[in-house]
């Protein structure tokens, strides 16, 4: 149906999309996970409530999440240029993706950790556990199923956002869809990219759900 050139381009698109999604998810977690823990710990019912710290992180997360991603992409161009030296291409869009993902991940992690039964935390305290032990040995362990589910949802979201970044020359399948489908009216290429995105999304969701349920010991 397609010649070798187009197939080559689609394969590169898949590679770039996966690259953007995975790298931004990983860096997003490196930033968002600690922030989520911070939100949980400093929250009203947390291990160490601190209204000021909570409010600051809370407001920043809300601001980032309330800006539509496509606008965030453009707003962050100067910052992106400062960090990676260019505002386009796969590396260029990773910066706004990470910013957006971090805020989102912080919230997802916070809500996963909030679900941990307070009684279990109290039991750990009664055994003489300190707050760091409670975070790493109780909260993160007890919430792992929920955290993995959150990870899956986040990866799916970033897959969609990475495609959106095609509009500013981000590369990947989104870029191909915009250039060929929108600018050149080549519907077949556009439909192919959409199908590829759907397949990637399904695989991520399938793996995530499988891992989450195989690690969950709560029901059986």
């Amino acid at each position: 149906m397609f010649d070798a050139k187009v197939i080559q381009m689609l394969l590169e698109g898949v590679r770039d999309t996966l690259y953007m999604t995975l790298v931004s998810t990983i860096i997003g977690y490196a930033v968002g996970l600690p922030l989520g823990i911070l939100l949980n710990v400093t929250g009203v019912t947390g291990l160490r409530p601190n209204r000021i710290v909570y409010r600051i992180v809370d407001v920043i997360c809300n601001i980032i999440r309330s800006i539509p991603f496509i606008i965030l992409l453009i707003l962050l161009i100067p910052f992106t240029r400062f960090v990676v030296g260019q505002s386009y291409g796969s590396n260029g869009v990773i910066v706004p993706l990470v910013v957006c993902a971090s805020a989102y991940i912080a919230r997802v992690v916070e809500s996963s950790l909030n679900e941990v039964d307070h009684g279990i935390i109290e039991a750990a305290k009664s055994m003489g556990a300190n707050n760091i032990q409670i975070v790493f040995k109780v909260l993160l362990v007890e919430a792992k199923t929920s955290l993995i589910t959150g990870f899956t949802i986040t990866t799916g979201l970033l897959l969609g956002y990475s495609a959106m970044s095609g509009t500013v020359g981000g590369g990947g399948l989104g870029d191909i869809a915009v250039r060929y489908g929108y600018h050149r009216w080549q519907a077949d290429i556009m439909i192919t990219t959409v199908i590829l995105l759907i397949i990637i999304f399904q695989i991520i969701q399938y793996i995530g759900t499988k891992i989450a349920s195989s690690l969950d010991h709560r029901k059986r």
Binding site: G119, I120, E122, A123, K125, M127, G128, K137, V138, R218
Partner: peptide
């Protein structure tokens, strides 16, 4: 606190750890 044991109405076991690891938990801490 580690010299004072405590048990609860809702048991408060770690749901993601097996029985042996639950009992090891205070020792691990």
């Amino acid at each position: 606190r580690s010299e004072i044991g405590m048990i609860f109405q809702s048991f408060n076991l770690l749901e993601q750890k097996n029985v042996l690891d639950n009992i090891c938990f205070p020792l691990e801490i």
